[in-house]
Nucleic acid binder design. Structure first.
Length: 364
DNA sequence: CACGCGTGGAA
DNA sequence: TTTCCAAGCGT
């Protein structure tokens, strides 16, 4: 019979001591129990959804400089907010953020509500973000569970059930070890522990304040948790983009549909993204205008959240100024190369633009 | 509940 | 080079 020493439950106080000594500086974060500007907290939470702290920081500075208050952001145009979000990814968040701050103005007189239920009712705010804002901005008692917290709980309690099925259990475990005060600091402390110590790979268990309370560490198996369902492979897709230049040296762009991927952002016209390379007839069908296209050198490869895309380039000079054929739905516009960055562009469009400019400069 | 939805850093 | 995956949300 294996004799096993019962582990003491993890101590919130011990974690808070570690946090006070080791927490990173973040521009929206206050230390020593002080509460942040609620607008800063809300803005950072939108940006931090599925996005790492280091990636968010420059965007946070840009937003707060341009829109110092929630009211200022609520008065901005959606195009401007999307433009400022360009490159950050998951672009739906920009639209939800804009809708959210406008809803705060309309429903709550411009003051961010403090209770989870009212927060949860706002666009783009789900269970995590509502709990995080309530706890961090207002020091309300809330169970703040993100991917970090799930990983920490799965290890501390050696949860065998696989993600995502284990989510409910992990939430219950997180709620079972809340502190009696400093709810905001504690929420950040568990997440910070997950981000800095209890990492997915090579966790730093020997430096962890909960080392002696961790069932997974006791088994020498920390990295094996959380258990996960196997996930499927990401498909490869292909497309061709048309770089259309007019005599004024402008290039043709079109706006993507509001729904779906990269909604409302600008791209070069091209073929749909499909698992087979576009056929000759597809190229003819989807070219924005009929002219002699030159083939670019190397295709641009890009990885999205759920597939890979390889985009070939066709470059053509349009003899006459023309208005794009109306059979192509959507909004079109001509832009100077140097003005491209004034549009809300996804990274794919920027990379295609770079490849096209390289090609054109090599030819001239 | 499973899926669609970006990007870049780390290993 | 490839793989993993991050302070999730809406449908």
């Amino acid at each position: 019979m294996i004799r096993r020493t019962a582990l003491k439950p993890p101590s919130p106080a011990a974690l808070l001591r570690w946090y006070d000594a080791h927490a990173r500086d973040m521009p929206w974060r206050m230390k020593g129990g002080k509460r942040p500007n609620p607008y800063h907290e809300l803005l950072s939470e939108f940006m931090l959804q599925q996005t790492q702290v280091a990636t968010v920081i420059p965007y946070f500075h840009a937003f707060t400089k341009r829109w110092p208050t929630l009211m200022a952001l609520a008065k901005a145009s959606l195009d401007d907010v999307r433009h400022a979000w360009s490159g950050l990814g998951y672009y739906r968040r920009a639209k939800f953020l804009h809708q959210c701050v406008k809803a705060v103005v309309e429903r709550h007189g411009g003051k961010i509500p403090q209770d989870e239920e009212a927060l949860r009712a706002l666009p783009g705010i789900g269970p995590y973000t509502a709990a995080a804002i309530a706890a961090i901005a207002f020091d309300k008692k809330a169970v703040v569970v993100d991917g970090n917290v799930e990983r920490v709980m799965a290890r501390v309690f050696a949860v065998e059930e696989k993600l995502p099925a284990a989510k409910k259990k992990l939430h219950e475990l997180a709620s079972s070890i809340l502190p009696k005060n400093r709810f905001g600091d504690y929420a950040q402390a568990v997440m910070e522990l997950g981000a800095m110590m209890c990492t997915p790979k090579n966790p730093q268990c020997t430096k962890c304040p909960w080392q002696n309370n961790c069932a997974a560490f006791a088994k020498g198996m920390a990295q094996a948790y959380p258990r996960k369902a196997t996930k499927k492979v990401t498909p490869q897709k292909y497309s061709t983009a048309f770089i259309t230049l007019n005599k004024k040296g402008e290039v043709l762009l079109r706006r993507r549909d509001e729904k779906g991927m990269l909604g409302g952002l600008w791209e070069f016209p091209g073929t749909p993204w499909e698992t087979a390379k576009p056929s000759a007839s597809a190229l003819k069908r989807h070219a924005p205008v009929k002219l002699r296209w030159q083939t670019g050198k190397k295709p641009v490869s890009h990885v999205f959240s759920h597939f890979k895309l390889e985009t070939a380039l066709r470059i053509g000079h349009s003899a006459a100024a023309f208005f794009p054929d109306t059979k192509h739905n959507g909004e079109y516009r001509w832009m100077k190369w140097k003005d491209l960055s004034t549009l809300a562009l996804p990274t794919l469009t920027l990379r295609i633009a770079d490849a096209a400019k390289e090609y054109l400069e090599a030819k001239s």
